[in-house]
Write a protein that binds this DNA or RNA. Structure first.
Lengths: 235, 235
DNA sequence: TTAGGAATGTTGTATATACATTACCAGTTA
DNA sequence: TAACTGGTAATGTATATACAACATTCCTAA
């Protein structure tokens, strides 16, 4: 492995393991250069790349610090419905409908890369904005990677927040479609009439495998999914 | 401006102006170093950063080349329905429903940052996959930035392709929702019964301002929007 | 006490150099 | 013709050095 890569790996593990929490200072270029017996330019490259990846922030004259994890991906966290609601200065609360350990349905087992019939952790939570249900979060979790998933209080923090704490997520794939809700979903969403719903299927993976598969259903009349992206950042 | 930045700017303009088309070779590090009277490391940095931004591709031993523009953003081009269909080895064809110059409706004028009542270019095109309509593309275009928009043959290439040629796009913002289609949309989509539709509103901007605003409507039964993202790329 | 300034440490930019690794081409050989 | 060989040029990694720009701390002088 290249020298700058070993330094990156070293720092990366410090952050991932939690040994260096948010805003924790990272060794300076000169210190790294000496401890790893490399030139400053090589140590510098490691820090520079980590900063471009958003893991650390650097300020001239001050130093290098572990970046706040929440900023790691606007695209990932934007789907944290609780934050989104609070951001609008609205009230958020959640109702846990289901919290159980069940044999994995076939499609779920495949998604989580487990054997069919293996037990998985299952939760269904309704999220309310100002008292009105805006999302049903139907989630299956890999019990090997997150054994204590069922022991959390999801009226206080969201599953997404807990999963982010426990396992750093590295990947996410999404599938978005428009569907009509099932009877069950209509109950949970307190819909009297069927209406088009935006359904987001989302699979998140960490370094050790697929962590969780979630199906997020929003009533079309109460929800829009916004996004923004820029392409050539340096101009 | 820093030296490496002026070199980047130089190359950027070559690409943006079209003087260097896709796959055109970019001056080597040594050549750039000499012509700009900088060290090779400085020229190198310019090329390195351009490559990280996806504007050029570099291969050791071979050289640096202008990257194919379509790869600039998987997330941007993924919404080029024609490519997507052909990628699946399916037949694609398009029917132009409307192609006109009209006074901008209020919301459109705001989106395109034009005065209300200013004339804008308007197109509605239905895209077919294997003979079945899968998308209605309802698009308004800023006539100042793309005056010849109406003169193209959109049965051959898509508006998106043409716009990419004419003005390099730098930004896009999306709004996704689930809706029931209007009567008009149902006709264009050849739907007998109303069904949930995935509607994507998309505004693209170039360096000179907002280029176009499009509303893409897909029948829920015939379309899913897939995406994939990775966060910490270097591991 | 407070304002100002010097000292120090940190990151940012730039240069010169060396060698490693790879791609490509031309010329040679089997 | 086909395969091998070597040369050349390009990018990738690494080092050593110098100076610039900025932040922070601490000490001094008003």
């Amino acid at each position: 492995m290249a020298k700058f890569a070993t330094i990156k790996e070293y720092i990366y593990k410090k952050i991932e393991s939690g040994e260096w929490p948010e805003y924790h200072p990272v060794s300076s270029e000169n210190v790294l250069a000496e401890t790893f017996s490399v030139s400053r330019m090589t140590a510098r490259r490691a820090l520079h790349e980590l900063s471009e990846e958003g893991l650390v922030t650097r300020t001239r004259g001050s130093g290098t610090f572990v970046a706040p994890l929440k900023s790691q991906s606007a695209l990932l966290t934007i789907r944290n419905i609780a934050d989104e609601i609070r951001l609008r200065n609205h009230r958020h609360h959640a109702v846990v409908q289901i919290l159980e350990r069940v044999p994995a349905p076939k499609s779920i087992a495949a998604a989580l890369q487990l054997a069919v019939g293996a037990e998985v952790l299952h939760s269904v939570i309704t999220h309310f904005e100002n008292g009105q249900p805006v999302q049903v979060e139907d989630r299956y979790v890999n019990p090997e990677l997150v054994p204590a998933y069922l022991d959390q209080d999801y009226t206080q923090s969201t599953p997404h927040e807990y999963l982010c704490e426990v396992t750093p997520l590295t990947e996410a794939s999404h599938l978005i479609e428009a569907v009509l809700p099932s009877e069950q979903l209509m109950q949970w969403l307190e819909l009297d009439e069927p209406e088009p719903c935006l359904q987001i299927q989302r699979r998140t993976s960490g370094r050790e495998g697929v962590v969780s598969q979630a199906t997020l259903t929003h009533p079309g009349s109460r929800f829009r999914l916004g996004g923004h992206m820029t392409f050539k950042p340096s101009h």
